[in-house]
Simulated scan of single mutants.
Amino acid sequence: MRLSFFLFLCLVLAGCNHFEFSPNQAFDRNSFRDINNRNLKKLGSGATDDTVRFVLTGDSQKSRDETVAFCKAVNALPGIDFVLLAGDISEFGVLKEMEWISRALEDLNPPYVAVVGNHDLVARGKDVFLNMFGELNYSFTYGGIKFVCHDTNGREYQFNGQTPDMQWLQHQLKPENGVTGYIAISHVPPNNPDFDPGLIKPYTDTMVQTPGLLASLHAHTHQFEEYFAGDRKVPFIITSAMADSEFLVIEVVNNNLTYKRVSF
């Protein structure tokens, strides 16, 4: 009798998609995998698209209901090519948090991609992000604009001088055939105390000195901000948090970048 019950219990647990052995689990059979690459394949290159229009949002942690409302608001807008989620998908780096938000974002009509936030790196968050979304530093080109997505969460690495990865970043921002402009995307902006203080100047100088850099986009502070750097007055634009029910619609036409704040 005991053996029969044990076998029955094993079958139940094996067949239960929601069973977790630990809150520190980095993936389960329900987890999304490689979201960024999957959605970039859907997006394509935009080779014939002369207007690049996308949404910037961030800090979706603890905001599943707002994320549902966000998807409805974005879907109601015309001509949105894709959505950029600028980090802090989760609050505690827990698998279920990222699954809840990712499931809500599946309702978006345009594809979305994410960059890693500081909260996404706590506990097992880095492993969860790598499994669910992909690399921490990556880039893609759409409509002739190269989007350079990267990790700027210096405090999570004890300000070790390696985050952001300046060598990788500078290589990504070199002139490239078919690329007319560049947009950098990361979570922590360089004017924030969570950015590695030893890398603020080289990072900002890199942005300012990159020909064709249209903007550096960020989240993290939970409030909108824009400031400028260098003689070219390169804009550093920070979006509000998902919980504040606001996002940015950014448009690039003929290498001119404009944006508007949208409440939902």
Rank of each mutant, 00 (worst) to 15 (best):
V128R: 01
P164M: 06
V249Q: 07
L199C: 08
S139T: 07
D196F: 11
T210G: 03
V122G: 03
L11I: 11
V12C: 10
S102N: 13
F32I: 04
K126Y: 00
P193N: 05
G212F: 14
I89S: 05
T57N: 05
V188M: 05
D120C: 07
L108F: 10
Y112W: 13
A47G: 11
N75Q: 09
H150N: 09
H218L: 02
V148A: 03
N255L: 09
E176T: 13
N137Q: 11
E91K: 12
N131S: 13
R29S: 15
K72F: 08
P189H: 11
K233I: 00
D34F: 06
E156V: 02
L7H: 06
A14E: 14
V148Y: 02
E246M: 10
M132V: 13
L130M: 03
P110D: 05
F21M: 14
L7M: 12
N36Q: 07
L213W: 07
H220G: 01
Y138K: 03
A47H: 15
G230I: 13
S240K: 12
F82H: 03
P23E: 12
V55M: 06
E156R: 11
R38H: 13
V94R: 08
E176C: 07
G79C: 02
R124T: 15
S240N: 13
V55Y: 05
K72Y: 12
F140N: 00
D244T: 09
N30I: 12
Q25L: 14
S245C: 12
K174D: 05
I145S: 10
L13M: 13
F82P: 01
G44A: 06
V83N: 05
L56V: 10
R155G: 01
N39T: 08
F70N: 03
G181W: 04
A229I: 01
I183V: 14
I200V: 13
A243R: 15
V252D: 01
W168P: 06
Y227G: 04
H222R: 11
G44T: 02
E106S: 12
G154T: 04
S22K: 09
D34C: 01
G15W: 10
G212W: 14
D88M: 06
L9T: 14
V52T: 14
S60I: 02
Q61K: 08
F21Y: 15
T141G: 00
T258F: 00
R155H: 05
S240Q: 13
G161A: 10
E66Q: 15
S245N: 15
P175Y: 14
I35N: 00
V249R: 08
G198K: 14
M98W: 01
L9E: 07
Q172Y: 09
A14W: 12
F140I: 00
L40Q: 00
V262Y: 06
E20L: 15
G87C: 04
R64P: 02
R33I: 13
V113E: 04
E176F: 03
K62R: 14
G198P: 02
D34E: 05
L7P: 00
R155N: 07
C16S: 06
F247T: 03
N118F: 00
M98A: 13
E99I: 03
